[in-house]
Amino acid sequence: MTVEDPRPDAELLAAHVSGDPTAFTSLVGRHRDRLWAVALRTTGDPEDAADALQDALLKAHRSADSFRGDAQVTTWLHRIVVNACLDRMRRAKSRPTVPLPEHDSAHPIEPSDPLGRRELAWEIDRALRTLPDDQRAALVLIDVEGYSVEEAAQLLDIPTGTVKSRCARARAKLVPLLDHLRNPPEPDDVPVSDERSAHLTDRPPGAQP
């Protein structure tokens, strides 16, 4: 995939359905990073993401003629990818969630830079993996990928109310974490302390040595 195929998505998909052997790969290649991001964040694991993407793309490749054109091609692709991720996670359910390695001293949270983007992204990705699969899928689609509630409901094939409540549950779990990250020296059960100590220590007062 070195040369971008100039044809629009719908045209590429139609070409694929009528036997163009490279159209589908061109289509997927164009959206590969976004599909990867969704798969990676929905599954929380690069291996699972790659496996799920392969399942999904082969399915999409075979069932392309079922695409009706009433949705965007990307929505259709994302739907297949998200469902493949959820399927794969359900099948792997017996496997315990593998927590990410603890934040070690090589990557300290910088209290002086509580909004450091890399750190924050790292922590959020880590926190995402602690969410139940269904909640994570809803949150990733709506808050990370920017789909509307309606679109996410369509993608996940569940009622909008369910999408909202899953997303809300997920946000409720993440907010305390984000709060903690942004204000590391101020554990939430301690009344607001004086700013001096907050900035002089390099770890939360309550943290273990």
Partner: peptide, 29 residues
């Protein structure tokens, strides 16, 4: 904190598909 969380999620860096994953997927296709 909720709008802040939503902003942080929306601003997560985009992920690039690793080349080896792409190789694998295109071979499968």
């Amino acid at each position: 904190q909720f709008p802040a969380l939503v902003d942080a999620l929306a601003e997560l860096p985009s992920e690039q598909m690793p080349e080896q994953v792409w190789q694998r997927l295109s071979a499968a296709l």
